[in-house]
């Protein structure tokens, strides 16, 4: 079980990296958050592979068939890291990691029990051999290449929203 402290630390660090952060505890809550952050007219891609992704789809009014033509991607990711506020996106299970890269808005659902405390815990989970692609995502795409002025949204998403899904009511671990 994930301690509420770990969830809080993850959400704080992700928020500091300019990600939008949300916490829900059931499918209805997930749909409520989604309808608030993904507009009904935006073509959104959702692989619909996991229970949480299936629970998310009814709230997406305009569903894109694939990520190439989508303006937003809604997906459940492999996990997250509290230490850095990062998402862990991987290619296992036939996932297209670039689905969270090409559209302008990336919405990631993270199961609370998939939050690792530190970077080391995350990489230890790949001890048996890493998948083709592991990408740690921390905040939206950014650059400071012109006069070191921060600009958000270069080649990757300009907006990143993270929804932590705690299926059990949080209790101290």
């Amino acid at each position: 079980m994930t301690s509420p402290e770990l969830v809080r630390r993850f959400l704080t660090n992700a928020g500091n990296a300019a990600a939008g952060t949300h916490a829900v505890s059931d499918a209805a809550g997930l749909r409520r958050v989604l309808s608030g952050i993904v507009s009904r007219t935006v073509p959104a891609f959702c692989p619909g592979l996991t229970d949480k992704e299936k629970a998310a789809t009814p709230s997406l009014a305009c569903r894109a068939a694939d990520y190439a033509g989508a303006k937003a991607t809604v997906e459940e990711v492999y996990g997250a890291i509290a230490e850095t506020g990062s998402l862990v996106c991987v290619s296992s299970g036939g996932r297209a990691v670039q689905a969270g890269l090409l559209p302008a808005h990336h919405v990631a659902i993270v199961a609370s029990e998939r939050i690792f405390a530190a970077l080391d815990d995350c990489f230890a989970s790949f001890a048996e051999g890493p998948p083709t692609n592991i990408t740690l995502v921390t905040g939206p795409s950014r650059t400071a290449d012109i006069e070191l002025t921060l600009a958000i949204g270069v080649h990757g998403p300009e907006k990143l929203d993270i929804i932590v899904f705690s299926s059990e009511p949080c209790s101290d671990a």
């Binding site: 990296a17 290619s91 036939g94 083709t132 692609n133 592991i134 990408t135 950014r142 990757g156």
Partner: peptide
């Protein structure tokens, strides 16, 4: 923002790489 770890090529059944 991104740390990518790339191990080999896209395998059968995969959609990344």
């Amino acid at each position: 923002s991104y740390v990518s770890v790339i191990t080999g090529t896209r395998k059968p059944g995969e959609a990344t790489g």
